[in-house]
């Protein structure tokens, strides 16, 4: 089985991110960059799928600058990806990245394409469905459990929604976006790290993949970045529980006027 996995480099979840004084950019120098956490789950799902089906191969893909290749693809090699493609471009948005990925996968024809349910930087939730549509493949999104049938023709997935859970059967090939729950992402072994040094990603530019001109343009033009609205310090109540509770209810009713 040919398995593909898509990885993106994003600022770490705990990183403090500052907006430039003019609000036109983010100050990302010095901010720790990591493999998008949901993509780590996707990579884990890919590794488990390969373990379940003898003779399978994993192709990893990252769209981004050299740092994306250095972190995402070297990590993918270190945990066992067989091949990798680096689409070298730091300006594509998620739509452009999906177009570039579609061009790569049209050639390599994976049986299943894994990606994270969302990238935690732009939080658009666009990539998996967009990629599926471009490739003419079905998609299953935000899957927290996946079992690929022994014949490799379908996958049974579980997906959480607002107040419950769905079980879906998806015909392969398909694009499957992964949520937490498929298994803890593994860390590379020392041998894995050493082996990774012998592997090289194939580098492509968006233009080589036919993503140029209007296709490469961002869907939304960003005008301004701003920190979230700041809150003024709240009221702190330190009296004994019964009094504190009564005081709070009074404030919610008379001051906030919300109950």
């Amino acid at each position: 089985m040919n398995i593909a996995v898509c990885l993106k480099l994003v600022p770490a979840t705990t990183a403090d991110i500052k907006v430039a004084p003019d609000g036109k950019s983010l100050q990302l120098s010095g901010v720790e960059m990591v493999v998008n956490p949901y993509d780590e789950y996707a990579l884990e799902a890919a590794l488990r799928a390969r373990e379940a089906s003898a003779g399978s191969k994993i192709e990893a893909l990252a769209v981004g600058g050299d740092d994306a290749s250095a972190k995402c693809l070297v990590h993918a090699f270190a945990v066992g990806a067989d091949t990798a493609v680096h689409v070298k471009d730091a300006t594509l948005d998620s739509r452009g990245a999906a177009k570039a990925a579609a061009a790569v996968f049209k050639a390599s024809k994976p049986d299943v394409i894994f990606c994270g349910r969302q990238a935690i930087d732009d939080d658009q939730w666009l990539f998996p469905g967009y990629l599926g549509e471009l490739l003419g493949l079905p998609h299953a999104s935000a899957v927290s459990n996946i079992v690929i049938a022994p014949d490799g023709q379908s996958a049974t997935c579980k997906r959480r929604f607002e107040d419950g859970e769905q079980t879906l059967t998806v015909a392969l090939p398909a694009v499957i976006s992964i949520d937490k729950g498929v298994g803890e992402p593994r860390s590379p072994t020392l041998k894995g790290r050493l082996d990774a040094k012998k592997k090289q990603a194939v580098v492509k530019t968006p233009a080589e993949l036919g993503v140029a001109g209007a296709d490469a343009q961002a869907a939304l033009s960003i005008q301004q970045y701003a920190p979230p609205p700041q809150k003024t310090p709240g009221k702190v109540i330190t009296t004994v529980p019964a009094e504190a509770a009564a005081e709070l209810v009074k404030l919610l009713r008379n001051e906030a006027k919300i109950i």
Partner: peptide
């Protein structure tokens, strides 16, 4: 913005040639 939109808007935006702004 919710489970339904997150499941179908990526695909819809490709099909309709639309831009997407989530959430």
């Amino acid at each position: 913005s919710g489970s339904l939109s997150r499941d179908i808007t990526g695909r819809l935006s490709a099909r309709l040639g639309a831009r997407l702004a989530s959430d």
